[in-house]
Design a protein around this nucleic acid. Structure first.
Length: 478
RNA sequence: CGGGGUGUGGCGCAGUUGGUAGCGUGCUUGACUGGGGGUCAAGAGGCCGCAGGUUCAAGUCCUGUCACUCCGACCA
């Protein structure tokens, strides 16, 4: 269905990044298109990536006391209407169920774009005492948002995610939860996906519909655009009031609880691709790669080669490495290219010459470097190389983020930087919406966040020239 | 939503003034090969996105529609 040039025909990734991305997701066997716009098939390799992300996050969520639940897919329209900002934010992109069988429904049902309202409705029924709090819930599900423009991973109409929803006695506790979960996302990004983040708070203009504060981790893609990679919202007691969730507190007074929600989606897979991928295809960080090591037998028909290859596989498996061998009858060169496209971090070649010398050849996906490894040190060196690759990918991405983040004191500087180099720009900001809008109109960037790590990059807001103590990071967002 | 481009074997494409579909690759079988996308041989595979219309005749012309893609606008 999808037409486009082959990935191997693209010689300069920077020239046509968007096309490179859409080609690579099919070429690497991640995505197939369905018959409906914006609905994508995650093929086994993509789903395996998602499962690895799930495994990491789910374990962290549970360590921190959260429980998984499953909420309904459909929301009655009346329920969605209860929180005004929330419904206004989502109304343009909700899908509706209007019929059951041939019967038209008395009240149409919204297919969840997010589940705040469902959690609130439920909590209003089950929460009555401070002893019931906190409620620490999470669900893994898909949601529907009727987007106009769609792209694999980056903007699906239906996408997989997790949404955490929590309810607390006090504002302080809820604020802490919001921060804590943001840190969990930052950890996932940096330690597993090798994607350095800028942590911060969203401006009022950019925050979630109905939230009092939205926090974000922002990553820089290889085209220097920003990808919001996980968000954590503090709601105050706004939803609780709208949904009439009340509890008897420790002083036996009726109180409204404070609420949070936080989410991360399959969009992250797009982030991994756009952070580490190159002209040869995907390039996966070892800690998240479905296959960490691909063993390729050379001259497989010669005696002993296949046996030796499967011996290496079982030794590595034993050592806890996610390893596969490619014993198909393709030529070695074909296999090299194929597994590079799939982003397997480490390739191990084993052929007759290696067997003679009691060694194998290890090839690093991200650098192309070839290292001969004595078979006696196979497990140890493999693990060491995987760790090294993980670290190098992060450092390389970090260097990219740093060297493409600039500071500016005037609007002209901002424009010049964006025209000549692109990337993120840090400026001071007065806090007014008008200046934020003007930055968008004049320079084409939106505020990504107000970073937790503040610096002084001038004394005044570059738009209105008012003195300012707040630094904002600007960029072009996905 | 606006502008450009595209839908033809699994994938990438060609198809002239309308005349009943072809190439590359992949697939199947066999042999030789094998350290960077191998060679040869023989096969299988398509109501040309979908729905209408014009015509003796439509992949080709017309209308509509669906989907993909790029740019922009919008957007959690």
């Amino acid at each position: 269905m999808a037409k486009g040039k082959n990935v191997e025909q693209i010689t300069d990734m920077d020239v046509d990044f968007a096309q490179w991305f859409t080609d690579i997701v099919t070429k690497a066997g991640l995505i197939d298109y369905s018959g409906v716009k914006g609905f994508f098939i995650l093929r086994p390799y993509a789903y395996a990536l998602w499962e690895n992300i799930q495994t990491v996050l789910d374990a962290r969520f549970k360590e921190l006391g959260h429980e998984n639940v499953s909420m309904p897919l459909l929301i009655p329209e009346s329920l969605l209407q209860k929180e005004k900002d929330h419904v206004e934010g989502f109304a343009p992109e909700v899908g509706w169920v209007t019929h059951g069988g041939s019967e038209e429904l008395a009240e149409r049902l919204c297919i969840r774009p997010t589940s705040e309202t469902l959690f609130c409705d439920h909590w209003s029924n089950v929460v009555s005492s401070w002893r019931d709090l906190p409620m620490l819930y999470n669900q893994w599900c898909s949601v529907l948002r009727w987007e106009k423009t769609t792209r694999p991973f980056l903007r699906h109409r239906e996408f997989l995610w997790q949404e955490g929803h929590t309810l607390h006695e006090t504002a302080e506790e809820a604020e802490l939860e919001t921060q804590q979960m943001l840190n969990v996302y930052a950890e996932l990004c940096e330690e597993y996906l090798a994607m350095p983040v800028v942590k911060g708070r969203k401006t009022d203009k950019e925050k979630f519909a109905g939230a009092e504060a939205t926090y974000t981790v922002e990553c820089m893609m290889h085209d220097k655009k920003a990808l919001q990679s996980g968000t954590s919202h503090y709601f105050g007691d706004g939803f609780a009031r709208a949904f009439d969730i009340q509890f008897s507190d420790r002083e036996n007074k009726l109180s409204y609880p404070h609420q949070t929600s936080w989410g991360l989606s399959t969009r992250m897979i797009g982030g991994i691709i756009m952070t580490h991928g190159d002209n040869n295809g995907l390039n996966l960080p070892p800690r998240i790669a479905p296959v960490q090591v691909i063993v390729i037998p050379i001259a497989a028909h010669k005696p002993g080669v296949l046996d030796k290859a499967s011996e290496l596989v079982s030794r590595l498996k034993q050592a806890g490495v996610r390893v596969k061998s490619d014993t198909s009858d393709q030529s070695p060169g074909w296999k090299f290219a194929e597994h590079e496209m799939k982003g397997v971090p480490l390739r191990i070649e084993i052929g007759p010459k290696d067997i003679e010398n009691d060694q194998c050849m290890a090839v690093l996906r991200y650098s192309g470097e070839k290292i001969s490894v004595p078979l006696s040190a196979l497990e140890e060196q493999t693990k060491q190389l995987l760790e090294q690759i993980q670290k190098s990918l992060f450092e390389r991405a970090k260097e990219y983020l740093t060297s493409n983040t600039h500071s500016a004191e005037t609007l002209d500087d901002v424009k010049t930087i964006l025209n000549e180099r692109g990337g993120f720009v840090k400026t001071m900001w007065c806090g007014n919406l008008e200046c934020e809008m003007k930055m968008k109109d004049e320079a084409g960037v939106t505020s990504r966040c107000i970073p937790f790590e503040q610096e002084r990059v001038g004394a005044v807001c570059p738009i209105c020239k008012e003195p300012s103590d707040t630094m904002v990071v600007w960029g072009v967002a996905y």
